[in-house]
Design a protein around this nucleic acid. Structure first.
Lengths: 208, 208
DNA sequence: TCACTTTTTTACCATTTGGTAAAGACACGA
DNA sequence: TCGTGTCTTTACCAAATGGTAAAAAAGTGA
């Protein structure tokens, strides 16, 4: 067998685990900055502190690394949305979601940019995931929000566009950081500002 | 002289104008999809229907094309923000801005993606522009909004984050179109939905 | 310690990529 | 129709890129 690394037969060794993580971390850095086409194996290798052939010992190729990263991302990316509890207090649940999303954007900006890059490029490698994983969750949570509106617990608005606006406003702080860094003086750049503003924005929208 | 095309000496001929536009249009298509590093001159040449050396007859190189595109973009990109009138009705002015931005995102998605790509990559070629052109305008309009709040004409909130959220929500419809296409059924994908939702969102935020 | 497996390195390779040189084709006024 | 400047093509290049083969080195269990 060419390389055992590809998930198949037996348990991965200590060193295998370490290096795969090293590579994926380096790849995340590079792919999230330059997109799939713009990233090179040499960049990833250098960032990981390994040689290019060594990287190809652990992964089948450039695309394999990218796909692995995307699969991994899809899990963590959807988690905050799943945590929304239909029987909780609607406004609290939605604001909680906003905060989890904002925290994620600020703590995992590379993941956010990786996602943004993939979508910007037309989601060539991710569309199946979007249909299979995101779409059902999106529909389900849209229905939950709709039910809250029907029950008069929150003001009526389009649930889909509501979710879009939550994604847009939170991810903006990760994806457009290069812009906000220019526009906001350093002392105004803390999380508090964004967090307080988004609270205000969505509380006003949702309060009946 | 190697090529007269570089803006210097004399007036550009008919064919020169046509081909430069052809090239810039093709480059916009390619750069906006793949980012600077991911785009290739061959792709641009093919898209433009010209040979690669022919393209290099009109532009100094790959970077020259990208920079030209970015300069061009900066103008049209800032226009909607400039049109906000300090002595008009605040809510009407701000909603007008939201609509102009949304229209632009929907009519010029390639420009929006070009911008997003550049910022995602850390704005390596655009940071000077941001500081020189966007920052002053951002500060000025933030002050205008602040004054409206001081006068009690709109509810108080952070003007900077307000502008961020307008940018985020409107550009989302261009930059993340690949995602919304998966999530929204075709008949719900018209502009009306987004437009009505954003109206609601920002009216509620701004009404005192 | 020794055989055997896993990991890493060295040396390549074909293709792609940004870019150039120079010869041709073309337009157009005199 | 001819000459001169504009535009386009052909034929290249050196470097970068994704990837491979095979040998060398490092581990590892008996």
């Amino acid at each position: 067998m060419t390389h055992t690394a590809t998930s198949s037969t037996k348990a991965p060794s200590r060193i295998q685990q370490r290096n795969r993580i090293l590579i994926l971390d380096a790849a995340l850095e590079v792919f999230s900055r330059h997109g799939y086409r713009g990233a090179t194996l040499d960049q990833i290798a250098k960032q990981a502190g390994l040689s290019k052939p060594n990287i190809l010992y652990y992964f089948g190729g450039k695309e394999d690394i990218h796909v692995t990263l995307l699969n991994q991302l899809m899990k963590t990316w959807l988690d905050p949305l799943k945590e929304m509890n239909p029987s909780g207090d609607p406004i609290k649940e939605l604001l909680g979601y906003v905060h989890r999303k904002l925290d994620m954007a600020l703590e995992l900006p590379r993941e956010s940019r990786l996602f943004a890059n993939e979508i910007l490029q037309g989601a060539p490698r991710m569309r199946p995931h979007l249909s299979a994983d995101l779409k059902p969750l999106f529909d389900e949570q849209s229905r939950v929000i709709s039910n809250w509106m029907d029950a008069g617990k929150i003001a009526r608005c389009d649930p889909g566009h509501l979710l879009f606006s939550i994604w847009a406003t939170t991810q903006h702080y990760a994806d457009f950081a290069a812009q906000t860094e220019v526009l906001l003086p350093e002392d105004e750049r803390r999380q508090d500002g964004a967090s307080a503003y988004l609270d205000q924005l969505f509380i006003k929208l949702l309060t009946p």
